[in-house]
Design a protein around this nucleic acid. Sequence first.
DNA 1: GTTCGTGCAAACATTTTGCAGCGTG
DNA 2: CACGCTGCAAAATGTTTGCACGAAC
Lengths: 148, 148
Amino acid sequence: MNIELSENYSFEEYRSLFYRILDEKKLNKTSERFHILRAIYDTDGHFTVNTLYNKLKSKKYQVSKTTIYNTLSLLESFYLIEKHNFGGSCAQYEKCDTSTSHDHIIIIDTDEIIEFKNEKLNLLIKEIEDTYKLKVARRAFTLFCHKK
Amino acid sequence: MNIELSENYSFEEYRSLFYRILDEKKLNKTSERFHILRAIYDTDGHFTVNTLYNKLKSKKYQVSKTTIYNTLSLLESFYLIEKHNFGGSCAQYEKCDTSTSHDHIIIIDTDEIIEFKNEKLNLLIKEIEDTYKLKVARRAFTLFCHKK
DNA sequence: GTTCGTGCAAACATTTTGCAGCGTG
DNA sequence: CACGCTGCAAAATGTTTGCACGAAC
């Protein structure tokens, strides 16, 4: 099975991948799961459980928070979203395509989140993997900054 | 006022710095605050609110969790400790001297935390500061790894 | 004596769990 | 029809808040 998403994937592609994973794992393809996936796809940047809950409610596709938590766990385990602990009161998520990775700068004064990529950092992490004989499963690189 | 701690500072040095900051800010020098500071000094590596609560209780210096939360906030604002959100159920803290900084590798299989320093990373962060015209107030760089 | 801090209990917020009933396959 | 999923309510957890009493200065 092709488990990669292209760089600017459509909802159909995202949905199809989710569908095929559910199928393979013999999990139910419920309408709630696809409504949640749609809400995620339509969200730019980071979101929380409440973001999705409110968005779905306002679109008359209300689902319980329990189900949102469940679905987000599933999606995380399938690498269709990423979970971040930036330190606020609740976890933040973002959709991801598996072909790219990026890190975060948080502007403290405004709570703005900037995403950035840095190839030197990727190389550095490879070096660290070799030095310590480790395989990095997930990295968290976040700079909390003030504007100069 | 000298606000730096030397590399292998004694408790007396740590305590004295805390004392002087409290003095300057006209905050009370309560016995609870110094008991908590002692417990932190005596802890190697990372700790949580509960770590300190239990440690103090077992030494017959019981203080309330409210006071521990208060004191940890104070110490964090004075840069005498650092707070981390690694993503577990609660925040982790560690004491710090202001002259050094390091990052973390978490071994997923064992929950072991390895501290490491990398000078290339420090340089890279300086470059990022320049590129984006930012001043980094705090950084979080953590690699979640499996052993190879 | 005034201000500040402590500690209790309650409030709060996020997340997890138990379970009855329903939907998917 | 068997099993998995949803959603409600309750529990669990970590953290914050309000307040009365006591300690620091």
